[in-house]
Simulated scan of single mutants.
Amino acid sequence: MRDPRHVRTARLWLDEPVEADADDLYAIHSDPASWVHFPSGRMTDPAAGPVMVGASRRRFDRDGLAYWSVRDADGGPVVGRGGCAVPDEALDADPTGRGWWNLYYRFDQRVLGRGYATEMGATALAAARSVAPERPVLAYLVEHNHASRRTAERLDLRLVWRGPDAANPDPHAVRLVYLDREPDDGLVAALAAEGMGPAGLVG
């Protein structure tokens, strides 16, 4: 991939976020309809918009890849945020120091049903494998988010862990972890450090 900061797909413009994207990103992430499956995750502070922009730019500089602002028209409004980024905690948790790519996708409710998450996700997987193929790609989601599960499965990710979602105020919530490869010992140890021990690994 020539320039992971700016990628064009059949229908989407995927770009490193800029300051002007902050309001659109916050609008998507503060919409209660975007968080039906995880209400406590909804953003309520407008400062979150600039924070998302800054986090992506910092990770592009550090890792060569991060979450994009997604548009479906050249120069149009941001309709989503997604891609692959290395979470800071992944570097801390992984004893190999390798970390992992986290695949993320969240879109404006008005564009759902168009397959944008799958289109963006496939491009993100290709970018992650181009930039640092030694890092596995993980997708975390809650079990009752069936649309997100379908996206992960369309991208040929494999369910490797199922268990309690420790960070979720809902005591009945179940967390799923999808992966693009067989987990090695280092990744199993890292997942255990994140509260997802071997007992939850799906064979």
Rank of each mutant, 00 (worst) to 15 (best):
M1F: 13
P4H: 08
H6R: 13
V7P: 00
V7G: 00
V7C: 05
R8D: 09
W13K: 06
L14T: 00
L14V: 09
E16H: 10
E16P: 06
E16C: 12
E19A: 15
A20M: 07
D21F: 01
A22H: 05
D23P: 05
D23A: 14
Y26N: 01
Y26K: 06
I28V: 11
I28L: 08
H29L: 14
H29T: 14
S30W: 04
S30I: 09
W35M: 11
W35A: 10
V36F: 12
H37K: 12
H37F: 15
M43F: 15
T44E: 14
D45C: 15
P46F: 14
A48F: 11
G49A: 11
V51T: 14
G54S: 15
A55Q: 13
R57Y: 07
R59Q: 10
R62A: 14
R62V: 12
R62T: 15
D63N: 10
Y67E: 03
Y67R: 07
V70W: 00
V79F: 01
G82I: 01
G82W: 01
C84L: 06
A85S: 11
V86C: 05
A90Y: 00
A93R: 07
R98Y: 06
W100N: 02
Y104Q: 04
R106D: 04
R106C: 07
F107R: 02
R110T: 14
G113D: 07
G113V: 08
G113I: 09
G113N: 09
R114D: 01
Y116D: 00
T123R: 04
L125Q: 02
A127N: 01
A127K: 03
A132L: 08
E134I: 10
E134P: 04
V137T: 04
V137R: 00
V137K: 00
V137L: 01
S148K: 03
T151I: 10
T151A: 11
A152V: 06
E153Q: 15
E153A: 13
R154N: 11
L157D: 02
V160A: 03
V160Q: 01
D165W: 00
A166T: 14
N168A: 12
P171W: 08
L176W: 01
V177I: 15
E182C: 11
P183N: 10
P183S: 10
D185Q: 15
L187H: 03
E194H: 09
M196R: 05
G197R: 04
